[in-house]
């Protein structure tokens, strides 16, 4: 019976330190409470002849000191836990982007090169990975214990999850948010491979177009090209170079065009109007399914790289 959980991601090391610190604090507190309780109930049992002396009447000093002591310890733990958590939210540059679509009861993974897998996720070692996740139905949760990461996968929006695996092997992937009948079957494998093996895996599974290529076809099929390539009579913003750049909005604010922004602009175009354009784009909510959406997003992403490159 193994009582420790291996760590396979450098990004989880801080979480392990925190857990260890928490175990230390709890052992100290439990030793204090159980120790004192055991000591008192033996020493001060009712038939014990021991002289109890004068009772401590003034409790105020004790109360203030242990209140402040617990406050200080707790506040320290709060800061410690929050700092790591906030860091987990920081985007890392040039991360490998992989799309995850959850549905009852499977994980569908879409790699940028067009490779698709179900209930399995292959990632290279020592590379920052960014998962962009959404759900087609209910709330799921992407949980890889050896990476110490977990994030709910919500219908109707993108959630991101970042890690950097540092140990090759095959590990559990769990859905940890109850999602219906086969919740406990919604499991899979995360395979961490050395860079060479990963490249081989990509080529051997990479038959077909990249996500962006597939997105290009969809871009025409859903009629996006009609306005956004400047062909029609309608004036719509050009999408070349859009991804990753700041977008000025009609209400004066500025947003960064990331996956979430592009997804939401397709689904709810009237929420964030680009400055100096008319709010005429129709909503594609309930028109484009999630797996087509990730292709469109990938295509728009690729447009930016073309322009820069």
């Amino acid at each position: 019976m193994k009582l420790t959980l291996p760590l396979a991601a450098s990004t989880g090391a801080e979480t392990d330190d925190l857990l260890l610190g928490l175990v230390g604090v709890s052992i100290a507190v439990l030793a204090l409470v159980f120790g004192l309780m055991g000591f008192y109930i033996i020493r001060y049992r009712h038939n014990s002849p021991i002289d109890r002396g004068a009772l401590e009447e003034k409790s105020f000093r004790f109360e203030i000191s242990w209140t402040i002591a617990t406050l200080v310890v707790f506040f320290g733990l709060f800061i410690w836990g929050s700092v790591i958590y906030v860091r987990q939210f920081q985007p890392t540059g040039n991360a490998l982007k992989i799309y995850v679509i959850a549905k009852q009861w499977m994980w569908k993974i879409e790699h940028a090169g067009g490779q698709r897998e179900i209930n399995a996720l292959h990632v290279p070692i020592d590379t920052p990975v960014e998962l962009v996740m959404t759900s087609e139905d209910v709330i799921h949760d992407f949980f890889v214990p050896v990476f110490r990461v977990k994030r709910d996968v919500l219908p109707g929006q993108y959630e991101t999850l970042r890690f950097r695996a540092d140990r090759a092997g095959t590990y559990h992937l769990f859905c940890s948010q109850f999602c219906g009948t086969d919740h406990s079957n919604m499991i899979g494998d995360v395979v961490v491979m050395p860079a060479k093996a990963y490249a081989d895996w990509l080529t051997s599974n990479g038959a077909g177009d990249t996500l962006a290529d597939q997105g290009k076809i969809l871009f025409i099929r859903y009629g996006c090209a009609g306005c956004h390539l400047g062909g029609g009579t309608v004036r719509a913003p050009s999408l070349a170079g859009l991804y990753g750049s700041p977008v000025p909005l009609s209400d004066g604010s500025t947003v960064l065009a990331d996956d979430r922004y592009i997804r939401d602009s397709i689904m709810y175009p009237k929420q964030q109007i680009v400055a100096s354009y008319e709010p005429i784009m129709p909503s594609f909510a309930n028109v484009i399914p999630e797996n087509d959406l990730v292709r469109l997003v990938a295509y728009i992403h690729s447009l930016a790289e073309e322009k820069r490159g």
Binding site: G12, E14, T15, L18, L19, L22, L77, F78, W80, G81, S82, I84, Y85, V86, Q88, D141, F143, P145, R148, V149, K150, R151, S176, Q177
Partner: peptide, 10 residues
């Protein structure tokens, strides 16, 4: 503790 909860949640 936020980061610990990420691992232990659910």
């Amino acid at each position: 503790a936020l980061a610990a909860d990420v691992h232990l949640h659910d």
